[in-house]
Design a protein around this nucleic acid. Structure first.
Lengths: 235, 235
DNA sequence: GCAAAAGTGTTAGAACTACACCCATGC
DNA sequence: GCATGGGTGTAGTTCTAACACTTTTGC
């Protein structure tokens, strides 16, 4: 039909915004920064940036995540593209949101400070700029789904973690309480946790055994068509 | 940091591509068109177009869907944003893919012909341009998930449908065979199907009772927090 | 009357849920 | 020795999956 489809098309900006989750003992947390340019300068915002012509969406999301946390090889997944006409008052901008899961204790505190970044409990979030609160809602919903179908919870914990910590994490993600025995049975029945002989005495005198997640074993099982390795924690 | 974030950012094109599913008696099908402009003119492609500055992503996806099918109020959901640098050889373009579920018998055949559109079995797809085959793979995966967790199957059927038709649809979506008795029990136990007193004799001499999906009742149950209305057909 | 699809119940095994006590340790 | 969190087993119930025959009708 139209002879010059490409030349007639309208150019616009493509942005990325990262919803960064962390877990700190008793709470699921989210990383927000103080925006350092107008409009909305000084208000809380997700970490974001604009897509460059020389990088893919995934690469850009990683670049932005690294610029704030210093962390590479992080769990990062595209969430949704947000494209309301007036979502950004300055320029027509489509934003592709990504969510990331990090171990809250490993990120670069200097970089964080430089960006005016701060962790917020997901139960006590400030108002964020633009449609960023919507993005967070969508990310939480996705995390809840994802965590009960695939072993992503481990991404929020240190490499070595205890079963009580893992349970607490799931309880925070789902805002509910879980039965200790049933939780342990289910987790261990998947046969992808390796028990170490170390104990963590951070939370109790007796101490709890540390485990690691056996990613290779898990991948192997998945490749062998065993789609039931990871059983939903919550329907 | 940078003083002119917006002016330094690079503009680019945002496209939309629609993966349109239909169901025809024995097969899950997908609508592809013959591309009518360069590059790749004459090759099979998803129906697509460019985002305008005056419309949201959802609006644009709907516009594109309507321009091909003539259908309004269609089930349409965002799938994923595809943003590899070289995915479009002409211009740097980020494409946001949407998938749609339509009743294959209701669309506008004139419009279809004008676009050189054609239905393909998902088991016998031609090569599509750019990354469109990847988009289809992702859409199928999403459809499989979605159909087992929410009652979207009905969108692919006429308003009135029989249980054998519904079962066949699920069998096509999941490429498997289902037990007739278990399927019927499960579907009816959700208590969101209304049995009419009409029979459809298209497929058998005896005829099968026609049902409709009670969307209001379903929504009511969801609002009342009954998250177990729709039980997964397949784990 | 027969071919072809529609419709209907039961049962064994698996999975889920609820529940209470002992253990190890630091103070 | 006691307070604190870590660790363990069972039984009742529910859900799932497998299975075969009767019904209706058009030809």
């Amino acid at each position: 039909m139209a002879p010059h489809r490409y030349t007639e098309a309208e150019q616009m900006l493509v942005a990325l915004d990262c919803i960064i989750f962390g877990f700190d003992q008793n709470e699921l947390k989210l990383l927000a920064i103080k925006r350092d340019f107008e409009p909305e300068k000084g208000n809380w915002s997700l970490m974001g940036g604009f897509l460059r012509r020389t990088e893919s969406l995934d690469e850009a999301a990683n670049r932005i995540l690294i610029s704030l946390t210093g962390l590479k090889n992080i769990y990062l997944e595209q969430l949704h593209a947000f494209g309301e006409v007036d979502r950004d008052p300055v320029e027509r901008t489509v934003s592709v949101a990504y969510y990331a899961l990090i171990d809250i204790h490993t990120h670069d505190k200097e970089l964080m400070k430089a960006h005016g970044a701060s962790w917020f409990s997901i139960h006590d979030m400030p108002d964020l700029i633009f449609d960023h609160n919507h993005m967070v809602d969508a990310a939480l919903k996705r995390l809840r789904y994802k965590a009960s179908h695939q072993p992503v919870g481990f991404e929020l914990l240190p490499e070595k973690f205890t079963l009580p910590e893992l349970q607490k994490l799931y309880e925070c993600i789902y805002d509910t309480e879980l039965d200790k025995r049933n939780f342990r049975r289910r987790m261990l029945s998947m046969d992808v946790l390796i028990k170490t002989d170390e104990k963590l005495k951070k939370y109790s005198k007796k101490g709890a055994f540390l485990y690691t997640f056996d990613k290779e074993k898990y991948n192997e099982k998945i490749e062998n068509g065993d789609s039931t390795v990871f059983k939903p924690i919550l329907s």
